[in-house]
């Protein structure tokens, strides 16, 4: 039992944070596709929530405004779901985003083969390497997704304000929008993790010599 190498969690977070900070520009680009995809997701969902709230106020003006804005509502409806077209667009954008993350992370891993090899020579286990990459992805994912979700929500409110005018502010579903932001952020973190799993496993499994042999 005593013959164990260790990497405390706090230290892993520190190293992961440092890697992101040092490669800030690259991290930014990796994160950017996530920001956009999550912003789109959040924009669509928050927009629907706002429209739904306007519908639920039951006012004649609100109903007319919704029809005018292109929502497919009938008198007596209580909810507005995402349209099939919206749903496909969101799913497609998230898929493109994951592929983008996988691509960027594969490049990042290749760039860091040597670093991975060195760490292994110093006694790092596969799990250390995996943990560092997952933590990095989680941090990037959280920051990117949170930024994207806020951006999306702000745009949703702004565009609703343009469409429906003052109506929006009498019935702004703050709780609902907050929920949407939170779920969109969680989705983003999940996507970021999903995108890094394959590259990180590939990196962690490399034998130290192979990793070191790669020329920079």
């Amino acid at each position: 039992m005593e013959r164990l190498v260790a990497l405390p969690f706090g230290k892993s977070v520190e190293i992961a944070y440092q890697s992101i900070r040092v490669r800030f520009f690259r991290s930014l680009i990796t994160t950017l596709s996530l920001v956009l995809a999550v912003a789109f997701l959040c924009y669509v969902q928050a927009g629907n929530r706002i429209a739904e709230t306007i519908l639920q106020t039951g006012s004649e003006a609100g109903f007319r405004a919704l029809l005018q804005a292109g929502y497919d509502v009938q008198p007596g409806d209580a909810a507005i779901g995402e349209s099939a077209k919206q749903r496909w667009l969101v799913i497609l954008s998230l898929m493109v985003c994951v592929v983008g993350i996988v691509n960027a992370q594969l490049m990042a891993v290749t760039e860091r083969f040597r670093e991975i090899g060195i760490m292994k020579c110093l006694g790092a286990l596969d799990s250390f390497i995996l943990r560092l990459f997952l933590l990095e992805a989680l941090m990037q994912g959280f920051i990117g997704a949170a930024a994207g979700a806020l951006l999306g929500a702000v745009f949703a409110v702004a565009s609703s304000a343009v469409q429906f005018g003052a109506l929006v502010f009498t019935a702004l579903p703050l709780g609902g929008i907050t929920m949407t932001i939170l779920t969109a952020t969680a989705t983003g973190c999940l996507l970021s993790l999903l995108g890094v799993v394959f590259p990180a496993v590939k990196a962690a499994r490399m034998a130290p010599v192979e990793a070191m042999r790669v020329e920079e």
């Binding site: 164990l4 040092v22 490669r23 670093e115 060195i118 760490m119 292994k120 020579c121 006694g123 286990l125």
Partner: peptide, 23 residues
């Protein structure tokens, strides 16, 4: 695990290309 421990505690490596972690 034992191999990692060996590399960590019993052996020190020095390389031609220094191999410090750049970040």
């Amino acid at each position: 695990y034992e191999l990692a421990w060996l590399r960590c505690r019993k052996i020190g490596y020095i390389f031609q290309t220094f191999n410090l972690i750049p970040v």
